[in-house]
């Protein structure tokens, strides 16, 4: 199975230093568990994607494009020649627009399937398939059987990346290629420095008094006061609790 890992030039969430995004190092670990993998990065320099060599990647292909160019056509141009069976990518490439569209665009141009938010990938029982475990909210999982070739994006809940080893990083190979000429520039949007804004008060009434909004911000709801049972028998209390839990949908409905 030919496996390619897409790597991006991320920024550290606190310091702003260029780093390999953690989720891509996690994708690399999933890829190496399946077989031999190669890296692919499109950007002005190989660093910080070349950090992936230290996490166990033997070979990185760096496609040199200007900083403001769209990486998708450059990636597609080099991937078309390789015809990989499986492409792993982070949930969202970092350092650029961070729209999360690049894996979808690559999959669509190469005619590959796409599965999002994987936390585990293994070979399927039938030939030409993989089994992908997908992370869902609230700790649930989904087991998918996917036909190859496929692009799989990796969720941050995937197993932690392999430790960085300096010797392994030195032995890895970085192959730099020039991008094919005539690549279109990415669409530029109006940009300004990021400014943090107050969060929306989730349960606050849209047009309540100041005291109502304060109560909502503290989590007290006006409906909460109504339903109080004082010294019921334990059986009554149990029935009321089970009925309430069923009404809000956390407990499955009574069987028959």
């Amino acid at each position: 199975m030919k496996i390619v890992v897409l790597l991006s030039a991320g920024l550290h969430p606190v310091s702003g230093q260029s780093i390999l995004p953690k989720v891509e190092a996690q994708a690399l670990r999933l890829a190496l568990a399946l077989g031999e993998a190669r890296g692919r990065h499109a950007g002005p320099t190989a660093f910080p994607a070349s950090d992936a060599l230290g996490h166990g990647l033997p070979h990185l292909v760096h496609v040199e494009i200007p900083a403001e160019a769209d990486p998708v056509p450059a990636l597609v141009a080099t991937l078309e020649a390789d015809q990989p069976d499986l492409i792993l990518a982070g949930r969202r490439g970092q350092g650029g627009d961070e729209t999360g569209l690049a894996p979808y665009a690559v999959a669509s141009r190469l005619g590959m399937a796409l599965v999002s938010d994987a936390i585990a990938v293994e070979r399927g029982e039938a030939d030409g398939t993989v089994i992908v475990h997908q992370a869902l909210p609230k700790g649930a999982r989904r087991r998918l059987v996917v036909r190859l070739p496929a692009v799989v994006t990796v969720h941050p809940d995937a197993p932690a990346p392999r430790a960085f080893a300096y010797g392994v990083a030195r032995r890895g190979i970085v192959e730099t290629r020039l991008a094919p000429p005539g690549l279109p520039a990415a669409e530029r949007l109006e940009e300004r420095p990021y400014r943090r804004r107050p969060k929306l008060m989730r349960s606050a009434p849209a047009c309540g008094s100041a005291s109502e909004r304060l109560a909502a911000a503290m989590g007290a709801t006006s409906s909460g006061v109504a339903n109080v049972m004082v010294n019921p028998t334990p059986e009554e209390a149990a029935r009321a609790i089970l009925a309430h839990l069923r009404a809000i949908g956390v407990l499955p409905p009574k069987a028959a």
Binding site: G10, L11, H12, P13, G16, Q94, G95, G96, D97, E98, L189, E190, E191, R192, P193, Y194, R195
Partner: peptide, 12 residues
């Protein structure tokens, strides 16, 4: 929306 590691915000 936020972009580039929440360094800039893009408006459209």
């Amino acid at each position: 929306r936020a972009a580039r590691g929440r360094r800039v915000e893009q408006r459209a």
